[in-house]
Amino acid sequence: MERTEKFIEELKRNDVEVYLTSRSSLNEDLNEFFKKQGIKRVFVRPRGLVNQLSPDIEFTEKFDEDVDAGLSEADFGIAYSGGLVELAESPSDKLPSLLPDIHIALLKESNILDDFDVLFENIPHPLPDITFIVGPSKTADIEKILVKGAHGPRRVIVFIVR
């Protein structure tokens, strides 16, 4: 799909690592990824796709020092910016994509939108809190030198689920 391609192109431009998968192989692909990266403990807010996972690793709903990565389901993707959209009903919903060094987001391909406009026309009211995430957290405040992982994640990984 053209939209998905554009989205992936923008994600890569934003230093996001992208994996394409399907519902049936999501578990397997994630497990393989965790294994390869040495990820053993994952911080989550369970819902949607996440609930259907049966990983070989430990899921925790509390953040602590031993967490290797955060896992969240992005509600939408924006092809225009390569941005992930997270809707939060409470502040704690925002934490898996914020606190750990690595953020892994799952996204249904059907939830990739062309542009922001489509999002704001379709979003339910009253509005939840909305966060757009465009790549890893970064700063260039010291002599304009780019450093990834300023206060948030150093790496952002997206699994697009077909």
């Binding site: 941005g83 939060a88 009903e89 409470s90 009253p126 509005l127 939840p128 809190d129 909305i130 966060t131 757009f132 995430i133 465009v134 790549g135 890893p136 957290s137 970064k138 948030g152």
Partner: peptide, 8 residues
């Protein structure tokens, strides 16, 4: 990198 829209 981040756009935060607060409504809650």
């Amino acid at each position: 990198v981040y756009t935060n829209i607060f409504s809650q």
